[in-house]
Design a protein around this nucleic acid. Sequence first.
DNA 1: CTACTGATAAACACTT
DNA 2: TAAGTGTTTATCAGTA
Length: 84
Amino acid sequence: MAIEDCPTKRLPVKDIYNWMVAHFPYFANAPTGWKNSVRHNLSLNKCFKKVDKDKGSVSKKNLPHPLALIDRFWYRPHLSLIDS
DNA sequence: CTACTGATAAACACTT
DNA sequence: TAAGTGTTTATCAGTA
């Protein structure tokens, strides 16, 4: 839901956490472990893929602040791209 | 009853 | 170094 609510359909795992606590207040005070479960599902389920940010799209002239840029995103591949 | 699925816990390697 | 991230295995409850 978090990923699909994002205009670009891709989010870093931290933003997925934030979306969850924002839309489901349960997680604000939930027992620890749910973030582990989120990451577990992202890794295990074929419905989710990880992609590295295309660094070339930011700037060709290697501008500064590489550390300020989040470079890992999760997204949902099209169903036809999910191999069984 | 068995197989499958999703949730949870945890060990672990790797990155920042 | 500590915290965060991602992968993986194990266990369990509920479901088809």
